[in-house]
């Protein structure tokens, strides 16, 4: 299987700040790739740079064989990239139904995907008519992921899904992400190394705005000193 996404040496500035100073990564089709690193290392900016929300100044982003860097974010997203941001960013004054409906790119997207989505997150069916703001943190996270599944996306960028959630909800989300990864490639930013290591097949470590290591997750698990050095975590 080839790579659906290849990021080659991108540099991103936010205002005067040189946030990404050379990030390269690839995501193999049909797998979960984890982006690891400390707080402030540039993981979120990497996702935003791929999508064009903070366009990279240099470097290349190749998605499904096409160079996409420099295009407007809505064009990039419409090519088939779903985004689940770290603050979830669901629309609190829209109902759950509207939150899903707004993500449609073709008429009837939601109807086609309804069984799959409600199979993953049965809660959402029950909450369908409620405003998004009335949902709990875990339910909002589920809605944010579900929203990214409505159109025919080939790649999902998921940022910190476990942040601020109870362990039992995290278990549920992990299971859902594992299931959806059978259909769509996932690029996952996750602070919770336990969760990331169990889900992802490959990894990239970003440190100080640079991608410093990448490879198969099972190899990383055999190198505890790397995990300690870059992630401050122990297995």
């Amino acid at each position: 299987m080839g790579n659906i996404l290849e990021v080659r040496d991108i540099h991103t500035f936010i205002g005067q700040f040189h946030i990404l100073q050379g990030v390269s990564l690839e995501a193999a089709e049909g797998t979960i790739t984890a982006i690891l690193g400390r707080n402030g290392a540039g993981k979120t900016t990497t996702l935003k740079s791929i999508l064009g929300l903070t366009p990279p100044r240099n470097g290349k982003v190749v998605f499904a064989g096409q160079e996409i860097q420099g295009r407007p974010a809505y064009e990039i997203a419409a090519m088939g990239i779903g985004y689940v941001p770290e603050n979830r960013a669901i629309f609190t004054n829209l109902t759950v139904a509207e939150n899903l409906k707004i993500a449609e790119r073709k008429r009837g997207d939601l109807d086609r995907k309804a069984n799959f989505i409600f199979g993953l997150f049965p809660d959402l069916k029950r909450l369908y008519r409620l405003p998004g703001g009335h949902l709990s943190g875990g339910q909002q996270q589920m809605l944010a992921i579900a929203r990214a599944l409505v159109p025919d996306n080939q790649l999902l960028l998921i940022d910190e899904p476990s942040e601020g959630l109870a362990p039992i909800i995290i278990q549920e989300l992990m299971e859902a992400i594992r299931q959806l990864s059978e259909r769509v490639t996932v690029l996952l930013v996750e602070q919770n190394f336990q969760m990331a290591s169990r889900l992802a097949k490959n990894y990239v470590i970003i440190d100080d705005g640079r991608s410093v290591r990448s490879g198969a997750m099972e190899d990383l698990l055999r190198q505890p000193e790397i995990i300690r050095r870059y992630l401050g975590a122990t297995i």
Binding site: L53, Y74, A77, P85, F91, I102, A103
Partner: peptide
């Protein structure tokens, strides 16, 4: 509420 997120949906 969040126009950047709307854009990120492909709109």
């Amino acid at each position: 509420q969040d126009s950047a997120m709307v854009e990120a949906l492909g709109i």
